[in-house]
């Protein structure tokens, strides 16, 4: 076969090759995003995602969406503008959460025996789906950043509440009140994570009484808008094709 000949002999074969190519690209993209996003999220969100006694109504709610909207925005930029595939955010978040579940189960439980009900990851899927749908319907980066970014921040806390709420039931323990999540953190000894490292319930948001989670979520949504823009541009930049001029010819 010469270089000018086609590698396929029929339309059916071309379709088959195209589909094979789809699965290869998808698998590669999925695993690459899983690895990169996972490292990024562990470095920036880390302990807030590892432990239930870090999942508070102020900082976890604020930090997790801001640092996790990054890869969804970038992968969306590539998959939407080049392929019109509105799955960038969902694909990224599913890859991240799959990686995290493997990590929590194999490492946190399998190696060090922390109970899974203490170390399960946060749920980011609701925000990701909404982000993808808004991009598909609006076909606009600005609209997706403003509406989708805000929705991503707002949906995070209620999207996790069904799993977290049971651990916020109070308990009296040796004369002190704490939540079951606090008790998990106290019972299951972390030699390298002393109590004072926990960044929970800190800040100056004291004028909203007990209802600070919605305010934190709004703030998180606003910052997520900015982060979305930034990472969407990163994604576009990484996904562009550059041709180098052949000056010799």
């Amino acid at each position: 076969m010469s270089a000018s000949q086609s590698a396929v002999r029929s339309r059916a074969e071309a379709v088959q090759v195209s589909r094979t190519f789809d699965w290869m690209i998808l698998f590669t993209l999925f695993t690459a995003v899983l690895g990169g996003y996972h490292i990024h999220y562990m470095l920036t969100g880390g302990d807030w995602d590892f432990w239930t006694d870090w999942k508070d109504r102020r900082l976890w709610v604020t930090v997790a969406p801001i640092v996790s909207i990054t890869f969804p925005a970038a992968v969306q930029a590539c998959l939407w503008w080049r392929y019109r595939l509105p799955i960038g955010a969902t694909l990224s978040v599913v890859a991240l959460m799959l990686g995290e579940w493997i990590n929590r189960y194999m490492n946190f439980w399998g190696w060090t025996y922390f109970p899974v009900n203490f170390v399960f990851p946060s749920n980011l899927i609701p925000g990701a789906i909404v982000l993808d749908v808004i991009l598909m319907l609006g076909n606009s980066m600005t609209l997706t950043a403003v509406v989708g970014g805000l929705a991503y921040g707002l949906l995070f806390y209620p999207g996790n509440w069904p799993v977290i709420a049971p651990l916020h039931v109070p308990v009296e323990y040796n004369g002190m009140m704490m939540t079951l999540a606090d008790l998990q953190g106290y019972h299951y000894v972390r030699t390298g994570t002393p109590e004072y490292i926990r960044m929970v319930e800190k800040g100056t948001l004291r004028t909203f009484g007990k209802d600070v989670a919605p305010v934190s979520a709004f703030f998180s949504g606003f910052v997520s808008i900015i982060i979305y823009f930034l990472w969407h541009f990163f994604g576009k930049w990484f996904a562009k094709t550059d041709f180098i001029s052949d000056e010799a010819s």
Binding site: K55, D56, W161, P162, A165, V169, M176, T179, R198
Partner: peptide, 18 residues
């Protein structure tokens, strides 16, 4: 809906203590 059912199932919850 899941938030609503959770709130009715766990009406008493408190913030993390620190």
């Amino acid at each position: 809906a899941s938030m609503g059912t959770t709130n009715s199932k766990y009406p008493v919850t408190t913030p993390l203590q620190a």
